[in-house]
């Protein structure tokens, strides 16, 4: 059985490729272990930098605040001034207990507060502002 494999293989071609494969495998394992896979948000927001962390579980509902102040509820975009109705609809099946807000660092605090006021009006007592670890 072993004699089949031992039949003088042309080793030179393999030997040039093996370091490449090694590196590629290494990179593959690195990305597998080091990265976390998260579904992409509908709009890219640059999170504000924060220092504190309230180790909280992943919130089922995420609301995005874009840099220009508009609020993204899943696929819908609304103005924070009139967000109350859409928010109630959006949170109806997700629950009111834990709502995460991903606000752009450059978004005006006013739009974030308007959104939080709308959330309070529909019965959300506490929101979780997502920040980026740093400074």
């Amino acid at each position: 059985m072993m004699s089949d494999i031992d039949q003088d293989p042309p080793r030179r071609q393999f030997e040039t490729l093996i370091p490449l494969i090694n590196v590629v495998f290494l990179l593959l394992i690195f990305f597998l272990l080091a990265g976390t896979m998260t579904p992409a948000d509908n709009v890219a927001v640059k999170l504000p930098v924060g220092a504190l962390s309230d180790a909280e579980r992943e919130a089922p509902a995420t609301v995005l605040v874009e840099a220009d102040g508009f609020v993204w509820l899943g696929e819908r975009v609304v103005d924070p001034k009139i967000a109350q109705g859409p928010l109630r609809e959006y949170l109806a099946d997700k629950g009111m207990e834990r709502v995460a807000v991903k606000a752009d660092a450059e978004a005006s605090a006013e739009s974030l507060l308007l959104l939080m006021e709308a959330l309070r009006e529909i019965g959300v007592k506490q929101v979780t502002i997502v920040t980026e670890r740093g400074g």
Binding site: L27, L28, F31, L32, A34, G35, T36, M37, T38, L47, G50, L52, S53, D54, A55, E56, A59, A100, L113, M116, E117, L119, R120, V124, K125, Q126, V127, T128, I129, V130, T131, E132, R133
Partner: peptide, 19 residues
């Protein structure tokens, strides 16, 4: 695939009472 889908952004959460 893994290069494109993974994110290395470390997020944390801050609990805030609604205003």
């Amino acid at each position: 695939f893994f290069m494109l889908t993974t994110s290395f952004l470390k997020t944390q959460s801050l609990s805030v009472v609604t205003p």
